[in-house]
Structure formats: C-alpha cells, structure tokens
Amino acid sequence: MTKILYANDLTACFSLWRKEGMRVLGPVSKAKTSGFGEVQDAHELDLNLVLTARTLKELFFPRTEPMFSYSIGKQKIETGEFLPSENACIIFGARPCDAAGMAIDDELFNWDYRDEYWFRRRDRSVIITIACKESDDFCMCTSLGLAPDSAKGSDVLLRPLASGNGWRVEELTPKGGKALQPIASLLKEGSEAAAPTAEVPLLFDLEACTTWLADPENFESHFWKEISERCIGCGTCTYLCPTCHCFDIQDEGDTYEGIRRKNWDSCSFQLFTMHTSGHNPRATQSARWRQRIMHKFNYFSDKFSVNSCTGCGRCTRECPVDMGVRETLQAISTLQK
C-alpha cells in the first residue's frame, strides 16, 4: 500500500496549501511559451508537457532582479536592499531533470559565499516532481546518469498512475513531508500501479567524454572549431539551461540615483570575457562553446564532483541552428572509439 493523490483532488490540495499561506506554482503554457507560474486551480496547469520551454531556475534566479538602490541627496545618502521576500511556495509538477538542476546549482551558490537571493527562495519552496512517462527526441537524462524518475533535488516524487487518474506519492525529504501534512486527508491509501516511466535511450558514454575533456591535449583540438562552426553566439542554450547560472552586475541610473541589478549573462556572448583593454581571451565562438562544455563536464565536476548538466535537452531543442550538448558529447564519444 502506498499513498495516492487523485487528480480530482488537486484543486482542493491547492486550496489547502494556500490556507497555510503558501503560493502554488506549476507548469503553465501561456502566451506562446511555457514555464512555471502561479496557479489557483489545477486546470491551469499543463501537465501534459514533456518539459516546459523555460526552466525551474527562473523561480530562484530570475533573469533580472534588483539588489539595491541608492540615492545621494544634499543632506544624506540613502540605500535600499531588495532581498527576496516572496511567500513560501509549492512547486507542483516539476520534472526530474529540472529539479536535479536546482540541487546542482545549490552547490555553486553556496560555494565561496552563500547567495541569499538564491537560497531565500530555495529554502522557502517545496519541489513536488512528477516522474516522466513520456520523453521526446531531445531528452537525454539517462546519458547523464539520471532517470525519468530521479529523486535528486525533489522534496516529493509523484509517479503517474497507469490509469492516468493521479499519482503515487513518495515523500523524499522532511521538507516534502511537512508540505504533505496539510493535504494528508486527501492522500488515499491504495495499491494502484504506476505507469511505466519513459524510455530514454542512452546517447553517449559520459565517462568516455569526461576523460577526453580532462586531457589537456584536447583543449586545442580542431574538434572544437568543427563542432561549433555554425554557432551564432546567442544565449538561448544558456538561458534555457536549468543549471547555467552566470550573471552580470549592472548599475542603472546615474551618479545621484540608481539601482544595481543582477542579470543573466551567457558565456556564448562575445562580451562575456572581453577585457577593458579590448583583449578577449575567448576570442572565437568555438572557444566560447568549448568553455560551455568544459565548464559543465570538467571544471564544475572538478570542484563539486558533479556534472552541471541534467540532460533536459533544452539546449538542442531550442537552438536556432540545431547545436547542443547532445551532438557535442555524441561526437566526443565517437572520437574515443
């Protein structure tokens, strides 16, 4: 026997959570894109999506956010802080790859200092993930050591019932357990079978790839130019990546009044590493693409013992010129043989 949450009870769950002062967010398709947004009713959710176009990270690391403001008057200087103060929230219907991405970025944002912007939001949110029973041509979680029902980064894991009427509920963390308390009356004991999880084919040998990447001989390989020749240098892959976390600090205003903001930034951009002198250590697009791959599968793993890719496939899915992590690692896999 296990706990079952029936889809018919979902809206009632949302009400109970709201009564506890929590906001409820989930995957929504709106205005020609999809991402995570606040919902009142279960019908607003788009749970049939394999994956939202935009990732979970936006909830913790918005594309732009104010850090502080300043104004200099004749008598005094005033400053204002903008630490996140949103109410606690339940994120219902994340996918395992996205949830895993948040756990990976926790390492980064808690490394040389604790990023309060990230953790204030992370600490006040509960991720309820739904295992995938479907995948698409771009999914590659299994190649990254994850699975369509990975628990990493989630507080509760839901397995869709074979009947399609609801989910088997697996509590994963104390935070998840606490979030289930207010809706305990709606969780029924049952033994209904779960639907099989999606079959996501293995696309490359990750270990072979990381070994190749770790070899300094390959840093200047022709491979990089060939694999990234068509890259147009936009930020799509990085901005739609659940783990890409680079940001830029921008001051908007003038000497007397202004605001400092934290904005997404991308290693794909020429300006990303441009020095004040005009020298650019990553002068070519291939050097920038190499950086993205090396960061994910070499530098990040060196530091945190985990690769910063969860195999969501968005980089390839959304690339205007059909590039992505998938093609690059597949190609490296082949180089090995």
């Binding site: 205005a31 020609k32 894109t33 935009r54 594309r63 147009i232 240098g233 936009c234 930020g235 799509t236 990085t238 901005y239 904005n263 997404w264 991308s266 951009f269 020429q270 300006l271 205007p320």
Partner: peptide
C-alpha cells in the same frame, strides 16, 4: 505584453543576417 517574455538572449540579433555590427549598440 509580447516583449515581456523577452529573455535578452539576443537570438534575434545573432540569427539576423542584417545584424552585422561588430559591436552592437546594446553591448
């Protein structure tokens, strides 16, 4: 409303054959 979705990835600029400025005004 349409622009509120913009994530400033500059894919429009990168994909446009007419956006050939060596240094874009936004940079």
């Amino acid at each position: 409303g349409e622009f509120s979705r913009c994530i400033k990835c500059y894919a429009c600029r990168a994909a446009c054959p007419m956006c050939w400025c060596r240094r874009c005004v936004v940079d």
